[in-house]
Each structure stands twice: as structure tokens, then as C-alpha cells.
């Protein structure tokens, strides 16, 4: 818990690769156990890091329940409420894409970090523009608190208590070359908080 991460001097490793694998496995078991009709379950990973997490969960669910749900990617950038601070340019792989119908499906949203809830709110708006799912659920690797909207995860890996100025950094093999969750304690002083 307290060892520092070589690339980020002020960061504490709050989840290492082994723990992350266990957490993903636990989440997959919970999802499989609570879903009576796995065939109607589809997953949408919120870009960027929710997508590889969703792929991993789908593979584990496939191993556990005998059917791997289909996975798509949701950008949410066109539905955010903080557009003026958002980046506009996107790579092709950062655009929303999925090849299934959400009408009548159970849609499981997957994201790495749950914090303010605003990303999940944007994702809900985006999904309902594509159709009317039977149900939408949310799975997150970590919940760092600091909620600004009444949104909770249906499936949660770990709760990480943080202060508002702290930074939670999820690193995934598919994007960052390693699996880890880092907590960077940051001063509330705006000079230090980059």
C-alpha cells in the first residue's frame, strides 16, 4: 500500500497488478451472478480506460458464465457538461463505436474511476440517444468519492478515500504498459496543484 511508484515520485500504489486481476475477477463474478440473462447483457467501456477494462471483464464473464458479452466503446465527449474545458481533437479509436442494438438490452457501463459522476451522467444521455435499454448499470474499478451527482456504481472494485486535490491515476497494460492504480497526494495550493 505504501510503496511509491517509480514514474510518479509523489504517488502511492493503491492497487498493484495482482490485486487488479483479483478485483476484475471479483467484479466479473458479481456481474455474472446478478445477471439472469447473460445473453441480453452488452457492455460499453467509457473511453479511454473503461474500454480495456470492459474487454477484460467480458472475457472473465465468458469464462465464468459460458457467454462473453459484446463490448463497445463510448466516448461521452459530445455529451459532457464541461465542454469548454474539453479537448476537441480525437483519434479515430476514441470515437463512440459499437455494433449492437441497445433497445431492450441490459447495458453495463464500465469506467476506471468513479468520482464526480459527471462522466456517467454524460454516458447515460449518450446511450438513450441510441435507443431504450431495458436497464443500464455501472461498473467501476475504483470509487474515489467527491461525488457531485446522485450516481453510484452497481459493481465496484475498491473504494479509495481521497481529498479533493488528490489525483487518482489508473494505469492499464493495454494503454500504459502496466497495471496499477496510483494515488497522488496534492497540495490544495494552486501553485503546486498542476
Amino acid at each position: 500500500m505504501s510503496n511509491t511508484h517509480h514514474g510518479y515520485e509523489d504517488a502511492t500504489v493503491v492497487m498493484n497488478a495482482d490485486t487488479m486481476a483479483d478485483v476484475v475477477d471479483m467484479l466479473a463474478r458479481e456481474i455474472a451472478a446478478s445477471t439472469d440473462d447473460i445473453a441480453s447483457l452488452v457492455m460499453l467501456g467509457i473511453l479511454s480506460r473503461g474500454k480495456p477494462l470492459a474487454d477484460r471483464l467480458a472475457a472473465r464473464i465468458g469464462a465464468i458464465a459460458g457467454h462473453a458479452p459484446r463490448v463497445g466503446a463510448l466516448a461521452t465527449t459530445l455529451y459532457r457538461d464541461d465542454l469548454r474545458s474539453a479537448k476537441s481533437a480525437v483519434r479515430a479509436e476514441q470515437v463512440t463505436h459499437f455494433d449492437f442494438d441497445v433497445d431492450g438490452a441490459t447495458v453495463l457501463l464500465v469506467d476506471d474511476v468513479l468520482s464526480t459522476g459527471r462522466t456517467a451522467r454524460a454516458a447515460l444521455d449518450e446511450i438513450v440517444d441510441y435507443g431504450r435499454p431495458k436497464r443500464i448499470q455501472l461498473a467501476c474499478l475504483v470509487d474515489r468519492g467527491q461525488r457531485e451527482l446522485p450516481i453510484q456504481a452497481d459493481f465496484l472494485g475498491r473504494k479509495i478515500p481521497t481529498d479533493p486535490h488528490d489525483h487518482v491515476r489508473v494505469r492499464l497494460m493495454e494503454i500504459d504498459g502496466e497495471d496499477a492504480v496510483l494515488l497522488e497526494r496534492r497540495s490544495p495550493d494552486p501553485v503546486d496543484a498542476v
Binding site: 466516448a75 459530445l78 476537441s88 480525437v90 483519434r91 470515437v95 463512440t96 441510441y130
Partner: peptide, 26 residues
């Protein structure tokens, strides 16, 4: 110029939606 070109792909995807609403609330 490249910023405009790199911003456009997500809007191509909006127009190409097969189901639901072909618009975004930007």
C-alpha cells in the same frame, strides 16, 4: 487546420448512427 480535421471524425459517427437520434447536444 489539423485540429478541425481531427475534430470531425466524431461527427461523421453521429451522422452515421444506425439507430436512435442522429444529433448531439453540443
Amino acid at each position: 487546420v489539423e485540429l478541425v480535421l481531427d475534430t470531425a471524425p466524431q461527427f461523421v459517427a453521429v451522422s452515421e448512427r444506425q439507430s436512435g437520434i442522429k444529433k448531439v447536444p453540443l
